[in-house]
Write a protein that binds this DNA or RNA. Structure first.
Length: 357
DNA sequence: TAGACGTGGAT
DNA sequence: TATCCAAGTCT
């Protein structure tokens, strides 16, 4: 027997989560709010997103404000959230949408926007425009795998999962409330059908769940084993001048931490850097001392950074010519510094000026 | 298709 | 401490 969308919606009406980007019952959400939240929520927890979401709406109340903002302001507001291509695409998308006078209300139109893939297009379509589609995110994959007892490991089994998920809204109650149905699936996955220790006894679909009936629900979806995470090493340099300014530079516009600021440093490679070797990459003559060591875990490698610190009287012009950017240390909070670089700065309190107490 | 792409919290 | 995980997209 297919799952009853009416049962899920009834459960949702009693248990739905209150979230800043959600419309009040019976109201339609603002497409700008839905889109902004969906981009932020990609591979990111609700708890991490909420403060960023509020800050963005404070800084950029409308998509026009976001479109007109300088890129670095957007990157700075995103700093710490990770996956910075999302911020670059967010800004590009805002410009496209603002120029067009609003979001497209079709799946194909949404899918053509920068940073909007199959999931996000469906989510915006269902939530903001009432399109009768099922957005398939990690929650919906998990619910679907368990409901139909689909045991093919991810990511290979993704096609099969999506095909089954697309049938979830086949019945009339779901079709009548596409926005609520999509969000009901999210809430079910986040609150009941959780990755570990699912609360099957409380599930509105417990009677129709093949995974529960077969006793395999908690083990689904199966996932292919992951590759081991390699280790890389780097060195970065914190130079502070007499005025309390520090020297930064801009990373390339694409790739890892693309478009963000960083302390000048070496490349990141498999072999550790000997001190003498690292110092050859210092942006200034020094004198440098190793002031800290930072470990940072990225998705696909672990990075160990030796952080060197030096206080010099005044930055030479050659530093700026080499792409160096000078900022007051007290302004660092508002800069486009990724978490890795904030760790490096926190690990190296600035050297005291000679003679200071 | 598989790998690149961040971060912080939970277990 | 180690591993997993979170409303994925792009190449």
């Amino acid at each position: 027997m297919p799952p009853s969308s009416a049962d899920l919606l009834r459960w949702y009406d009693r248990h739905r989560r209150i979230l800043p980007w959600r419309a009040a019952p019976g109201r339609t959400a603002d497409p700008y709010h839905v889109w902004l939240s969906e981009i932020m929520l990609q591979q990111t927890t609700v708890a991490a997103v909420i403060p960023y979401y509020h800050r963005f709406l404070d800084l950029f109340p409308t998509i026009g404000d976001l479109a007109r903002a300088e890129t670095d302001r957007v990157m700075a507001a995103w700093a710490g959230l990770g996956y910075y291509a999302r911020a670059r695409n967010l800004h590009a998308c805002a410009r496209v949408v603002a120029a067009a006078g609003g979001f497209p209300a079709t799946l194909d139109g949404l899918l053509a926007l920068p940073g909007v893939g199959a999931y996000t297009a469906a989510a915006i379509g269902a939530i903001a425009f009432g399109l009768p589609v099922v957005p398939v995110d990690g929650n919906v994959e998990r619910v679907t795998a368990r409901l139909f007892a689909l045991t093919d490991p991810l990511p290979a089994g993704r096609r099969t999962l999506a095909r089954h998920a697309a049938t979830l809204n086949d019945s009339q109650p779901a079709r009548a409330r596409p926005s609520d149905f999509a969000q009901a699936l999210f809430d079910l996955g986040a609150g009941i059908c959780t990755p570990r220790n699912p609360a099957c006894a409380l599930c509105p679909w417990r009677g129709e769940c093949a995974g529960l009936r077969q006793g395999i629900a908690a083990a689904l979806p199966a996932k292919a084993p992951r590759a081991a995470r390699p280790v890389r090493h780097g060195a970065h340099f914190r130079a502070t001048d007499a005025a309390g300014q520090i020297l930064l530079r801009r990373r390339p516009a694409s790739g890892l931490l693309g478009g963000m600021l960083e302390l000048p440093g070496t490349e990141w490679r498999a072999e550790p850097w000997a001190e003498s070797e690292a110092l050859a990459h210092a942006p200034l003559p020094g004198p440098w001392r190793q002031a800290g060591r930072v470990t940072h875990v990225f998705t696909h490698f672990t990075l160990h950074v030796d952080v060197y610190s030096a206080r010099i009287g005044r930055f030479p012009n050659s530093a700026a010519q080499a792409g160096g950017l000078v900022f007051a240390a007290r302004d660092l909070d508002g800069l486009a510094l990724p978490s890795l670089m904030r760790k490096c700065l926190a690990a190296t309190p600035p050297d005291r000026p000679t003679g200071a107490p």
